[in-house]
Design a protein around this nucleic acid. Structure first.
Lengths: 217, 217
DNA sequence: GATTACAGTGAACGACTGTACACTCAACAG
DNA sequence: CTGTTGAGTGTACAGTCGTTCACTGTAATC
């Protein structure tokens, strides 16, 4: 097993971690992964240090070599999930410049990212309103997300005259629709995806239908 | 203490519970109240049967005389909070018939009910996405809430021609805005209420601004 | 007035929790 | 080659957990 080699090159396959840092980084990631796995079915507050350690193949006390507490692991998990969220934002940013194109493309992007990272999104949406410190960390991230969206929105001709306050109002509204959509996707039974994304597009279209008639203050 | 009387009538004050049913009902309510109290700061999943029992002045085993498990108590709590929710719906139903009047009156109703029943709303919004069976019970209730709203919306002249599917889409959108508002109110620092309700009104106004231009399918 | 029903008690259980402490042993620095 | 560092081990402890069981005392019933 530890002598596995590539048949063609006769060299070690995916060479094992040698340095201490690499090893440490791997078990740290193993802890995060098992936690995320358990979180697919239960709230974060119900996870115990011991079962996360056991799931990662560690003795309980070894946990402390990587995190001072479960809460610290939770924060790390938020950061990890946040990377996915930012990736989605970045991907959506390269969308077309028309409303109609933007809507369906954005919804498609959300759909794609949710399906590819269900655990991350489930974690974020579940813990968002859980109370506790994780909720605060997530709230900060979502505010940033919404702020970025507001900036993007300001580039549209229709919205150029809007007050920043109204832009944030609109961005929050859109984010709220997106999050609702994400939750629906995560709870969907197989085959329901098209209906959900369709409804999401409708909601966004209705909102943007009001934009030309809005009198900003 | 047990002989307390009303000074004017010289009759027992709020006569003590005599029947067994009354007594049982009271301790049951005490269990629900303690649980709700603890839930102000922590997710439901972290509550233990023992501490709820202790908070209600009971020995752990006595808990089982009222609920077969913590989960059953949670369901009862959802039902209790649901009564508040329905009360809010009923109160909002007596609103004026114009969009503008409806919006500000509905937001005011939400604001008033949230402030008068913070624990119930905090519980509902916290557990909504928690996973677990409570989330399902809450989802059912919110779907009913949204369904009722859709029926109410159908009475408006502007919406009479809409497909039921689109009406539900609109109702869901409004409910989502309301829930967002509720969460914001619950997390608000003192004095922020007007800003929050103002933003809520804006969001609803923007949505309803698009309604006349919507082509239903 | 005797009997029953039952809300609440109290001790005990086995399982699980977070954490302290002393340890091993391989990767690292000198 | 030698000494140090630190990731991971193993044992142990004091708490808490849900649940069991036999019990008490009183309101309700006949």
């Amino acid at each position: 097993m530890s002598n596995a080699v590539d048949i063609r090159t006769l060299e070690p396959v995916s060479e094992e971690p040698v340095t201490r840092q690499e090893r440490k980084q791997r078990t740290r990631q193993a802890l995060l992964d098992t936690a995320l796995d358990l979180l697919a079915e239960r709230p974060f507050a119900t996870l115990s240090l011991r079962e996360v350690a056991k799931g990662a193949g560690l003795v309980p006390t070894a946990f402390y070599r990587h995190f001072a507490s479960m809460e610290e692991l939770g924060v790390a998990l938020v950061e990890e999930a946040t990377v996915t969220l930012r990736g989605m934002m970045r991907s959506a940013r390269s969308d077309p410049d028309t409303y109609r194109g933007m809507i369906s493309a954005s919804v498609a992007t959300v759909h794609q990212f949710v399906r590819a990272n269900e655990d991350h999104f489930r974690f974020l949406t579940r813990e968002r309103y859980s109370g506790g410190p994780l909720a605060r960390a997530i709230a900060v991230e979502l505010r940033m997300f919404s702020g970025d969206l507001a900036i993007d929105l300001a580039r549209f001709a229709q919205l150029r005259a809007w007050s920043t306050e109204d832009l944030h109002m609109l961005a929050d509204l859109i984010v709220s629709v997106m999050i609702t959509t994400i939750v629906e996707l995560l709870e969907a039974r197989p085959g329901e995806d098209p209906k959900i994304t369709g409804t999401a597009e409708k909601r966004l279209r209705l909102i943007l239908l009001g934009v030309p008639h809005w009198k900003t203050s």
